[in-house]
């Protein structure tokens, strides 16, 4: 038995770090539809679930989905509790210093303001955004008053109950909420293009796993499956590759 373990360990060395493990743990937030959310059956669902499963199938990896709070999603990646972050995380320079990103699997996105009335001036109002997002960073620089919340849900709730004048988040996250609100919520101001697209986050030392996923994303872009998934989850009008 011990010999077997040693042999496996030796094999693991020769095969390299990332590929030696056939199970890859995918970390996501599970609270950001349509990117990722928990469905009625209690499973992780959404655009990223579809993309992730397809990527793993193409790279012949077994993938296990793990839920983690947005707040601690990067610390738990670098300490090895899971191997990737696939949670609608935009590629930014600041994050790139701590972790690595694959190429984007969602084109650079528009962020938008949503308010309960159309008279809100987004330059000087009180704006809600989720902590540690590019949107929070943008609001902080824009001169408006920023109020931060741990979950996306709370940012929208803050607008509904009047705590904030508007919420600033990804357009795709806000759109279904605005549509379902029956006129209570509306887009205000102009959409703001932010970030360098959404990519998968990996540990900086996991270069091989990153290359594997990069190649899988390229192949999905080439044969159009990624575009199909984008249209399935974000509608006909969305930007595709």
């Amino acid at each position: 038995m011990k010999k077997l373990i040693l042999t496996t360990a030796a094999l693991a060395f020769s095969a390299g770090f990332a590929l030696a493990q056939d199970t890859v743990r995918m970390g996501t937030e599970g609270a950001y539809p349509p990117y990722n959310f928990i469905n009625d059956a209690g499973e992780i669902d959404g655009f990223e679930r579809d993309v992730g499963d397809e990527l793993c199938a193409r790279a012949s990896l077994t993938c296990e989905w793990v839920k983690n709070d947005w707040d601690s999603i990067i610390p738990n990646l670098v300490s090895g509790n899971y191997d990737t972050i696939i949670a609608g995380m935009s590629i930014t320079d600041e994050r790139d210093k701590v972790i690595d990103f694959t190429q984007d699997y969602y084109p650079p996105t528009d962020s938008a303001y949503v308010a309960a009335s159309d008279s809100v001036d987004v330059g000087s109002a009180i704006i809600a955004a989720q902590t540690a997002t590019i949107q929070a960073g943008h609001v902080a620089e824009s001169g408006a008053t920023l109020v931060e919340f741990a979950t996306p849900e709370e940012t929208v709730a803050a607008v509904r109950n009047g705590e904030a004048d508007a919420v600033f988040a990804d357009y795709d996250y806000l759109l279904p909420l605005v549509e379902a609100s029956g006129g209570e919520l509306m887009f205000v101001g102009d959409p703001v293009p932010l970030g360098g697209g959404v990519g998968m986050g990996l540990r900086e030392s996991d270069t091989e796993l990153r290359d594997t996923f990069d190649a899988a994303i390229t192949s999905m872009k080439e044969d159009g499956t990624l575009n199909e998934l984008l249209i399935k989850w974000f509608g006909e009008g969305t930007t595709t590759y």
């Binding site: 770090f17 793990v66 670098v78 090895g80 191997d83 996991d206």
Partner: peptide, 24 residues
């Protein structure tokens, strides 16, 4: 420790990377 990353060999992972989710 490589920068921010904490890297141990696969066999030392707790629980092993291949373990089912319930063990994690």
């Amino acid at each position: 420790w490589q920068g921010n990353d904490f890297i141990v060999c696969q066999a030392a992972k707790l629980p092993l990377g291949t373990s089912p989710q319930w063990m994690h």
